[in-house]
């Protein structure tokens, strides 16, 4: 995990600072930046050192919790702290929607193999997989926001209620995968011996499905959901852009366009860290859910 973290952040760091052209071009309005400003800035961001040394210094500061300053003098750490909770909230809403709808659809269709509901779920997941997120976003915004007027087309204040629609859009693609995964799981476990035993004992159907089958079928789904939270945090750029959510995605997109290297590396570092932590968490959760897996 540590090598991966270092590798990924180094990759991003190298890419961001390797942008050809002067990183401080246009930072001083219409005229060229004065020589003293540029040299002070180059000194501050260690740009005269070799890349590896630069990165080493950056990492050293990072380990002390210092994300550094942007070229405009703002604290990167503070900006991240202001926007990250919004994106986290959005990602959690999306994850909840995805889990509830996806698992329900998957279980229902898995139990009735080859029926009408099963076909319906298969066809709708096919559609959800095919529609790019920004198309879903704009169609939802157009139909429900502008034409029917049911929702506000942009998120004015990021409360949970306002984030439901963007969360739904963000979740739409993964929802289809969750439904398919849980459908396969249920269909595989339906004829397992332990299910037959449970039914033979006279347990009600609800308990057999809800406790016995779900616990065994949902292991791959949990893995998917865990890694998905990391993906949501990093991939919310498009959704946040459409609905104007003031989150990390908009921040990082703007900083990339304005070549604000310190901000980009800071945000990406946080996102990669979250992603790796989620992967670790999922691995640990595995052992809890499936006693056959043991980490010694």
């Amino acid at each position: 995990m540590v090598p991966v973290f270092i590798g990924t952040t180094f990759l991003i760091y190298a890419l961001v600072w390797a942008v050809p052209g002067d990183p401080f071009e246009g930072k001083c309005g219409e005229r060229d930046c004065p020589e003293s400003y540029v040299s002070a800035m180059r000194d501050k961001f260690n740009l005269d050192d070799p890349l590896v040394v630069q990165y080493g210094k950056y990492l050293g500061n990072l380990l002390q919790g210092d994300f550094g300053l942007t070229s405009a003098g703002l604290s990167v750490g503070e900006r991240i702290a202001a926007t990250f909770p919004v994106t986290l909230k959005l990602a959690l809403v999306a994850l909840l929607i995805e889990a509830v709808i996806g698992i329900t659809a998957g279980v229902v269709s898995g139990l009735r193999n080859r029926g009408f509901l099963d076909s319906l779920v298969l066809v709708s997941t096919l559609f959800l997989i095919s529609i790019p997120v920004f198309v879903t976003g704009y169609v939802v915004q157009l139909v429900f926001g502008l034409q029917l007027g049911l929702i506000s087309p942009t998120v004015t204040s990021p409360t949970i209620g306002n984030l439901i629609v963007p969360g739904f859009v963000l979740a739409s693609l993964s929802m289809a995968y969750v439904a398919r995964l849980s459908r396969t799981g249920i269909a595989e476990n339906k004829r397992a011996d332990y299910v037959r035993t449970a039914l033979a004992k006279g347990l009600p159907q609800k308990r057999v499905v809800g406790v016995h089958m779900l616990r065994n079928s949902l292991i791959p789904v949990i893995t998917f959901l865990g890694t998905d939270l990391g993906v949501f945090l990093g991939g919310a750029i498009v959704t946040e852009g459409i609905f104007n959510v003031p989150g990390v995605g908009g921040l990082v997109f703007r900083s990339i366009l304005t070549k604000d290297g310190a901000m980009v590396t800071g945000v990406v570092t946080v996102l990669v860290l979250v992603y790796l932590l989620m992967t670790l968490l999922v691995d640990l959760l595995y052992a809890v859910l499936d006693p056959r897996i043991r980490y010694d």
Partner: peptide
């Protein structure tokens, strides 16, 4: 390990960084 590093970068984010570097 190299593959792990590339998977660790979220797709849209990574593509934006690469493309802005190339577009410059």
């Amino acid at each position: 390990r190299v593959a792990d590093i590339f998977v660790g970068v979220p797709f849209v984010l990574g593509a934006i960084v690469i493309l802005t570097t190339l577009n410059a």
